[in-house]
Structure formats: C-alpha cells, structure tokens
C-alpha cells in the first residue's frame, strides 16, 4: 500500500542529512540575530523584531524538521486552519483589552494599585 511504505533508502538518508545540517546552521544564525538585535537595530521595536525572528525559526522547524513540506497537503491545511484560529483569538482579545473604555477607572487596567 503506497501510504504505508516505510522503506529503507540510503540515498534519501544522505540527502535528508544534508537538509538537517543546513537547517541547523540557519537556526543558529537566526538565534545569533536574536541576541544581537536589541543592541543593533530596531531597538525601539524589540518585541516586533523578536517575534518576526521567532516566526522565521518556527517556519524552518515546522517545514523541515517536522517534514511538513514533504507531507501530504491535508496536514498543511489543518495546520493553517488551527493557526488562523489562534490568530483570531489573539487579535480579538487584544482589540478588546486595548479598547476598553474605562481603562483609567480600574486599577487592574491602569496598573496603579492604591
């Protein structure tokens, strides 16, 4: 059965090993950027810059280490669906807390416990 094949293939092994090394180097470089970023560039937007690097690293891990790229598309679609949902949760909740109209009237939202 085509989908149940778990064959032993050494040529494939060498090729995949090469990918693993390349991705490791890529991830190490991105991690290095993580460390120097606050002192080099975008220091006023550290959060956004860090998040961006994080997503780049995550993409490498998911696509290559977790083999999503060579997986059947159905799993990719599922991942995309789950991530869109997460995005919606974040956007909506942050919109809510950001636009709360009585922010100044509660110590929980204005941060000063008196």
């Amino acid at each position: 059965m085509a989908t149940n094949e778990q064959t032993v293939d050494t040529a494939l092994y060498e090729r995949e090993k090469g990918t693993y090394h390349k991705i490791l180097i890529g991830l190490l470089i991105l991690t290095a950027i993580t460390f120097v970023q606050p002192h080099l560039f975008l220091a006023h937007a550290t959060f956004e810059a860090q998040l961006l690097i994080g997503f780049a690293k995550a993409w490498l891990i998911v696509a290559y280490y977790m083999h999503l790229k060579s997986e059947k598309p159905v799993i990719g679609i599922m991942v995309a669906f789950a991530l869109m949902l997460v995005l919606f949760f974040f956007v909506t909740t942050i919109i809510d807390v950001h636009h709360f109209q009585f922010t100044d009237e509660s110590y929980i939202t204005n941060g000063t416990l008196k």
Binding site: T92, I95, D96, V97, H98, H99, F100, Q101, F102
Partner: peptide
Amino acid sequence: SGMSDLAKTIF
C-alpha cells in the same frame, strides 16, 4: 462583564 464596546459590537 466589562468588555470594550468595540469588542461587543464585533461579537
């Protein structure tokens, strides 16, 4: 419950 008016409208 004390949600913002904007979020109420969206929901």
